[in-house]
């Protein structure tokens, strides 16, 4: 049976992450007023991706748990990315 120690994360760390998420959300609202052309969606998804990394790694403890669980999440993202790329093979011509 696999057992893992649970790390206790301080309130300060959680508070800082919450603050970062709020700031990033406000920032993603703000940049909708700027014109990035075709890169707009890339910028928006990058901010969303950064927020996801914070949630996964700190709120969901992936940073402190066995690396295998982080690997599983990365694996899922790889599968979804390949699925999206293959789908767009049909639309990118």
């Amino acid at each position: 049976m696999e057992n893992s120690e649970h790390k206790i994360v301080s309130f300060k760390t959680y508070g800082l992450v919450l603050l970062a998420l709020i700031v990033l959300t406000l920032f993603s609202v703000y940049i909708t007023q700027l014109d990035f052309g075709n890169l707009g969606i890339v910028v928006a998804l990058s901010i969303a991706g950064l927020k996801s990394v914070l949630v996964f790694s700190i709120f969901m403890h992936l940073l402190y748990d066995k690396k295998m669980y982080a690997l599983m999440v990365v694996g899922v993202l790889v599968v979804m990315t390949i699925v999206l790329i293959i789908t767009f093979l049909d639309y990118g011509y």
Binding site: D90, G92, Y93
Partner: peptide, 10 residues
């Protein structure tokens, strides 16, 4: 009615 690239890939 998919693109030829998709047909080949799949």
């Amino acid at each position: 009615g998919m693109s030829e690239t998709s047909l080949f890939a799949f």
